[in-house]
Simulated scan of single mutants.
Amino acid sequence: MIQRKFNIVLGVLAMLLFGSTALAQENAMQAMGKANAKVAKAASHKNHWDGPTDGPKLQNKKRVVFIAGDMVNTVVAELYKGTKEAAAMAGWEVLLIDCRAACYQGAPVINQALAMKPDGIILAGVDAQSQAKGLDKAQEKKIPVVGWHAIAKPGPVDGLFANVGNNPRESAQIAALYGVTEVNSKMGMVIFTDNSTPYLSAKSSALIEIIKQCDICRLLSVEEMPVSDASAKMQQTVDDLVKHYGSKWTHVIAVSDVYFDVMEKPAIAALIAGNKLKGLSAGDGSVTSYQRIHANNVQIGTVPEPANMQGWQLVDELNRAFSGVAASGYSMPVHLATNQNIPFDGGDKNVFEPDNDYRNQYRKYWVAK
């Protein structure tokens, strides 16, 4: 059984890394080495700066509107904090619009921001496609917009000067690869997905794709549940899953830490108390996710975003737009937080705060010219 498990895991890892059945069979051992290296790199100490080392001097006294998908989300709140911290260096004014998980469809929220007469706009956790008309208006007025998780990949795109954040497929792959290495013959997986935005949909499809390729990973169910509906729908969903699968349900993987936040509610926690679930999240490193990993309470890993640092990057990208230069193109490599590496990179404070001296790295060219 142990050898069979080893061979199956080798096979699925080879499929993930080489993308073909023939190569999977031929390169199984090589694939295991690559998979282990990929996971180890993601979990490594982030104490080296690999971001931009040159850019324009920070312009003074700009007004920026920060449109937050939901400030209850601790990662979005940390992003806002980092943005204000960086913006204060040049006397920028940062104004907040909190959508509270219910941004208007179409133009209105961008129109609200434009009415504040900003020099630039940040879309933080707000789907850019839902704001297409407003983005067109901002473009007409030559007001740059940068996003965070606003589209399905980092970098510049029509309507956005730049989009900051992890590549969602890479986040999902790291979470799933780590999950595959945790499998055993009794593993039964439930995946919680969200296809309400292109960003979350990319994570969802990658999780399903990878877990389905693992023969020993018994995929019990894929539960499509938008993050915004998790609080209202989770108890009934968990009750149904436990009744249907009982102790066969042992693992859960989700596109966001929010699902685990909801599963901690006493009424839901009581339903799964006998399952001794192991949980993994493909993002985004909330305070509560770190607390669960510390306590070994359901969640064994998350793929966090360095939100405070990304706030500094949002300011850097806007400053590049104000200065007429190209976006930096920077996206920090995906990180995996587990109970093995959680003492580093801010984990002792329940946040992903890379030990890479990012503040001074940005200051070097913001103030030196």
Score class of each variant (00 low, 15 high):
Gln105Ser: 14
Ala43Pro: 03
Ile67Glu: 08
Glu78Trp: 01
Pro108Cys: 07
Glu93Arg: 15
Pro52Tyr: 07
Ile122His: 04
Ala107His: 09
Val39Gly: 02
Pro118Ser: 12
Ala42Ile: 05
Lys81Leu: 12
Ala43Arg: 12
Ala90Arg: 12
Ser44Gln: 14
Arg100Gly: 08
Ala115Cys: 01
Glu78Ile: 04
Val72Ala: 15
Gln105Val: 11
Ala42Ser: 14
Pro108Glu: 12
Lys117His: 04
His45Arg: 13
Lys117Cys: 00
Phe66Ala: 11
Gln59Asn: 05
Gly69Pro: 06
Met89Ile: 07
Val94Thr: 05
Gln105Met: 11
Gly82Pro: 10
Gly55Glu: 11
Ala113Ser: 11
Gln59Gly: 03
Gly106Trp: 01
Lys81His: 12
Trp49Lys: 09
Leu123Gln: 06
Lys46Trp: 02
Asp50Phe: 02
Ala87Trp: 09
Ala90Val: 12
Lys41Cys: 01
Gly82Trp: 14
Asp98Thr: 09
Ala90Lys: 12
Lys46Gln: 09
Thr74Arg: 07
Lys41Asn: 10
Tyr104Glu: 15
Leu58Tyr: 02
Lys117Met: 01
Gly125Phe: 08
Ala87Phe: 10
Pro108Tyr: 04
Arg100Pro: 01
Ala101Gln: 11
Lys57Thr: 14
Thr74Asn: 11
Pro108Gly: 09
Phe66Asp: 13
Ile67Met: 08
Asp98Glu: 13
Val72Ser: 15
Val65Ile: 13
Asn60Ala: 14
Pro56Arg: 05
Met71Arg: 08
Gly125Asn: 07
Lys41Glu: 13
Ala77Ile: 02
Tyr80Met: 15
Glu85Met: 12
Ile121Tyr: 00
Ile67Thr: 10
Ile110Gly: 10
Glu85Ile: 10
Val109Ala: 08
Leu58Ser: 04
Gln112Ile: 00
Ala113His: 02
